[in-house]
């Protein structure tokens, strides 16, 4: 069976390849990378500092060194909507995990068919997929809303989850198609010679080999769903089902800008899970895939 040759152990190859450290060039590289990193994260550092300032000083005394340090923003922000903020984390997490599962499932199936299988209309399908990425979502909102409201699914997570399970995020289909196309055809053909049909080839050959694309899809789906504002705002109307961005959006008073401190505090807390998730997920990009079956 093709699997044994293709999904070979992964970590070893990288560790053999990696150590090239402690050359003088590396120190310079590190200095440049660190300097660049400082530039990149300065705004975030400012945000962290500000989140510990008394609320009314965040904007009026914007320096990096606070004259007063307090946890009030975190306290106020956490309870600002009458529900503990953890509720919104839980809601967002549920929605995000659901979306990831949906996208991985539906998009990989579609992508495999579009990238590898020969059938009439393939190009048309691919064109439709691309076209649906091209139309700005704002003109689709109202018809979609009417659709889901006629199904009586407002104020539930279905309008947000169903599309993910039906491969409507064409971005990821395209992404996966591009990745599958970098996988040498010989592997499919080898599998076919071993008697594998399209389903086994997909499951045992292609899917393991497109792990980087799957990880990428996971990362992107996580972040986009976690940060999505407009769609949850439209579909979710009661506070108990709010997601983090919808909750964050209510923190600041539009007229006086008060509440910025609480906004910063809760934004930073909401960054934490994505950051942890990212730190874990990106390891899979380091490990990568060793396609030892090629030679």
């Amino acid at each position: 069976m093709a699997t044994t040759t293709t999904t070979a152990p992964t970590t070893e190859t990288t560790s053999i390849r990696a150590p090239r450290a402690s050359r003088p060039g590396n120190l310079r590289k590190h200095i440049a990378l660190i300097a660049f990193a400082v530039l990149m994260v300065y705004p975030l550092v400012w945000m962290v500092v500000s989140s510990f300032k008394p609320g009314n000083l965040v904007l009026s005394q914007p320096g990096l060194i606070p004259s007063e340090v307090t946890l009030e923003n975190y306290r106020n922000g956490w309870g600002a909507l009458g529900e503990p903020f953890s509720l919104f984390f839980a809601n967002s997490l549920f929605l995000t995990v659901g979306s990831i599962v949906g996208n991985l499932f539906s998009c990989s199936l579609a992508a495999y068919a579009l990238a590898r299988l020969d059938f009439r209309g393939r190009r048309i399908y691919f064109g439709i997929t691309l076209a649906s990425v091209m139309l700005p979502m704002h003109v689709l909102v109202v018809p979609q809303y009417i659709f889901f409201s006629q199904l009586d699914l407002l104020n539930t997570y279905f309008p947000l989850l169903i599309p993910k399970f039906l491969a409507t995020d064409a971005f990821f289909i395209f992404l996966m198609v591009q990745f599958i196309r970098t996988i040498p055809r010989e592997l499919d053909q080898a599998a076919a010679i071993d008697g594998a049909g399209p389903f086994r080839t997909f499951w045992f050959v292609i899917l393991p080999l497109m792990k980087p694309a799957l990880v990428t899809t996971t990362i992107f789906t996580f972040i986009w769903t976690w940060n999505d504002f407009f769609t949850p705002l439209i579909y979710l109307t009661s506070v108990e089902v709010y997601t983090v961005p919808v909750a964050l959006n209510t923190m600041v008073n539009a007229e006086t800008q008060s509440g910025v401190g609480a906004l910063f505090a809760m934004s930073l807390l909401s960054l934490a899970p994505i950051l942890v998730f990212f730190a874990v997920a990106q390891k899979y990009l380091i490990r990568g895939i060793a396609t030892t079956g090629l030679k």
Binding site: F105, S106, L109, A110, Y112, A113, L114, L117, D118, F119, R120, R122, Y125, I128, T129, Q144, F147, I162, P163, F165, L166, A167, T168, I173, G197, P198, F199, F202
Partner: peptide, 18 residues
């Protein structure tokens, strides 16, 4: 072609419905 359409079931549903 047959297999492809099985793979494309979710996508086709999404296309028609959503």
């Amino acid at each position: 072609g047959r297999a492809a359409h099985v793979f494309l079931i979710p996508w086709l549903l999404g296309l028609v419905l959503i």
